[in-house]
């Protein structure tokens, strides 16, 4: 039992870092309605950039900024592949992800690199989990505030509308392609930032650390929505829900590990959990809905369920 309790601060810290990743993913997955697989690559890119620069003696804030920008660049590639070259969203993401695998190896120069929390000027480290929770928590508060205001601006409004109704947005003179690229850049920049924080916290960057990241991110989003849904539908709350979802995910993770589950099976478990949660709305609608009495034209929009702001 003590073992589990001792692991809790670490789980919370890691969960919060993944929460930042989930907030980034939320922008593409929920707001732009774009399932972006780039994130598996861009989270690693952020980690690699940060690890290499820290080991080269760069300032930790400069490292974070560089990681942020590298993620934005990754998002730009996916965006260009999709909007200017007409490649479907999922495939654009997969292509970028594969490109990034090679690029990440080149950045790192080897398959993994240590980020020594004792000798390097890291911002957070697993050596001091409570401090890490505080720092990452502050990051999240700042991010949510920033995003809340960003999505309330003119550009933010059109971004939200782009994912909601492309046709309407075009008719209102919005450059849909540019908007999608912008959204992908912001999203992946945040994901890479999460990667940079993760590398510092866990004390290393690894070429494979991003594998299945999208599933963890989705799990965090889904958990967050079911937990936060009854409190309110405010945009800031939803982003907060993503962060909380990340924490829940890692608490469950620690608990399952403590129960003695084979850690090799964790990815299988995560994927199944996410699959089940994604399937529930469909199954409910397809197999358990009662026939409507109204005419089809009178039905309220089904898209109305996912509200922003």
């Amino acid at each position: 039992m003590m073992e589990l309790l001792n692991a809790l601060p670490g789980a919370v810290a890691q969960g919060l870092i993944w929460g930042i990743m989930a907030i980034g993913l939320y922008i593409t997955y929920k707001i732009l309605d774009f399932a972006d697989l780039t994130v598996d690559g861009s989270i690693t890119t952020g980690a690699c950039v940060c690890a290499v620069m820290l080991n080269d003696g760069a300032n930790v804030w400069v490292c974070l900024l560089a990681a942020f920008l590298s993620g934005a660049l990754a998002g730009l590639i996916t965006g260009v592949l999709h909007t200017l070259m007409g490649i479907p969203p999922i495939l654009s993401g997969i292509l970028t992800q594969l490109m990034l695998w090679s690029i990440n190896l080149k950045i790192l120069g080897k398959s993994n690199m240590a980020v020594n929390g004792r000798s390097l000027p890291v911002l957070i480290s697993s050596l001091n989990s409570p401090m890490a929770i505080l720092v990452v928590g502050l990051f999240i508060v700042c991010l949510i505030t920033l995003l809340y205001f960003l999505f309330g601006t003119e550009i933010g409004c059109t971004l939200r509308a782009t994912g909601n109704n492309e046709q309407m947005v075009k008719a209102q003179g919005v450059n849909v392609k540019a908007n999608k690229i912008l959204g992908l850049m912001i999203s992946n920049a945040l994901v890479a930032l999460a990667g940079a924080l993760l590398a510092q916290y866990q004390g290393f960057a690894d070429i494979n650390m991003g594998r299945g990241a999208i599933v963890i991110g989705l799990a965090a989003i889904i958990i967050g929505q079911t937990r936060i849904g009854f409190i309110g539908r405010n945009f800031a709350l939803k982003l907060f829900g993503c962060a909380l979802g990340g924490v829940c995910y890692y608490l469950v993770y620690q608990f399952v590990v403590w129960l003695g589950l084979d850690t090799d099976l964790l990815k299988l478990l995560s994927a199944i959990v996410v699959a089940v949660f994604l399937a529930i709305p469909y199954i409910k609608k397809e197999y358990f809905s009662r026939p409507h009495k109204e005419l089809p034209s009178a039905q309220p929009s089904e898209q109305g369920e996912e509200n922003h702001a």
Partner: peptide
């Protein structure tokens, strides 16, 4: 359904 963004408020749609 095509002319407005369903998930956004009336004033947000008008603002766009």
């Amino acid at each position: 359904m095509k002319g407005t963004a369903a998930d956004m408020q009336i004033d947000e749609n008008l603002a766009i």
